[in-house]
Nucleic acid binder design. Structure first.
Lengths: 222, 222
DNA sequence: ACAAAAGTGTTGTTACTACACCCATGG
DNA sequence: CCATGGGTGTAGTAACAACACTTTTGT
């Protein structure tokens, strides 16, 4: 079936990067310089190399355009509306990336005007079909909280139950009952105590936990 | 980001078509003629046109290669391993299609040797990465049974509860308790009685039901 | 009469929700 | 001593799993 023929379509990868920053779930956006998208915000993205997987391209592009490296990536969906890019037909394989903390040491190249974290509740107008992409990514992330340990990728290696609950609440956008949350999350057996506790804060120290497996694990959660 | 550059990648659409036939969940495969995939089986697929969405391409290709028309399609995932096609770099946007009955009037073009339904439990060796695609499609279909009314697309407009249960069992590959199944499915409110019943079979007539909405509806099911 | 699928309830168990107070620490 | 987040149990309710017999039709 896939035989050579004339086809004039480019393939790109775009990445929706999420992290929790200042008590809000945020997405990382870059501000563009070139026409026709001058001054507009977009998710990091670019063309895939001929010998490179789309996931490798996403990681490379992310490194180039934002300085981020070695983070969790998963394929989201492919966006292929013929008019989605004003400069020509580009089919984009979208990825979702999760970061354990909102990095502050962002840097971009001089091809872009700025890089910044934006709370998902208050996104600016986005270039291309990136508003649609961001909405899809957020919906996927929320859904996956319900049946995987994906939230591990939004947390540091060890964390308190309070931080874990907070991460769930920030992503879901709703508050959870503390006692029920702890019962359920511990009953799942996805996390275990490290044996260590926090110290130095003006309140009772908290037990630190870690995920037994950090890789994506499918379980019935919330 | 998406600026012109030299990129030599083709974009195709491949379709995993499912139907229930002879009491088994089946996939539709075509047998290839040309090298290097001579005599191997594959899912229908082909290059996307420059001004066509991937979904439109999938529908067009399905019509051409199998004669099927007007069926349910949803995007599955994009497969992009650089070596997945021996003839060059092809990124494939995979779709899942569901058919209310296993059509018998299949026809293909003279570019292919044969078209046939294959039970998912006994697939032949597949060309490209289509074995991986088929497994992904099946996993997605099974998962979506659990939170959508997607099974409506595997059934005719009106059906008995027995047929509905049978469809679930064939897709999931496991038997369900009749009384619990009926209780649950009726409690969901996705289906309603048509008022008509079956007749002519050597057993008690069954009430016929229909889906209230045939479009994809998200609900907590099984 | 028999074969074949349709139809129908109850009980025990498990999971979920709602809800309020004391504890340990730093400042 | 006060502010802050950490930590804990129970009771009522709803959902789930297991399970067997009667009904209606065609042959």
């Amino acid at each position: 079936m896939h035989h050579p023929s004339e086809q004039n379509i480019k393939v790109s990868a775009d990445v929706a990067v999420f992290a929790i920053k200042d008590g809000a779930l945020c997405v990382l956006l870059i501000q563009m310089k070139k026409k026709p998208y001058e001054a507009q915000w977009a998710m990091p993205g670019g063309l895939i190399g001929d010998a490179e997987t789309a996931a490798d391209a996403a990681a490379r592009i992310l490194k180039d355009q934002t300085g981020l490296d070695g983070i969790y990536l998963e394929q989201l969906q492919t966006f292929d509306a013929p008019e989605r890019d004003a400069l020509g037909r580009v089919v984009s394989v979208a990825y979702m990336a999760l970061l354990p903390r909102a990095a502050e040491d962002l840097r971009t190249t001089d091809k872009y005007a700025d890089v910044r974290w934006w709370p998902v509740a208050k996104l600016p107008a986005l270039a291309y079909d990136h508003a649609h992409m961001a909405a899809t990514a957020l919906a996927r992330l929320r859904a996956k909280l319900g049946y995987t340990n994906i939230i591990a990728n939004l947390l540091p290696a060890s964390f308190t139950l309070g931080q874990l609950q907070d991460a769930y609440e920030r992503v879901l956008g709703q508050e959870l009952d503390k006692r029920n949350f702890r019962k359920k999350i511990l009953a799942l057996g996805l996390i275990e105590e490290t044996g260590r506790t926090t110290a130095g804060a003006a309140h009772r120290p908290a037990a630190l936990y870690r995920f037994r497996k950090r890789g994506l694990t499918y379980i019935e959660i919330l």
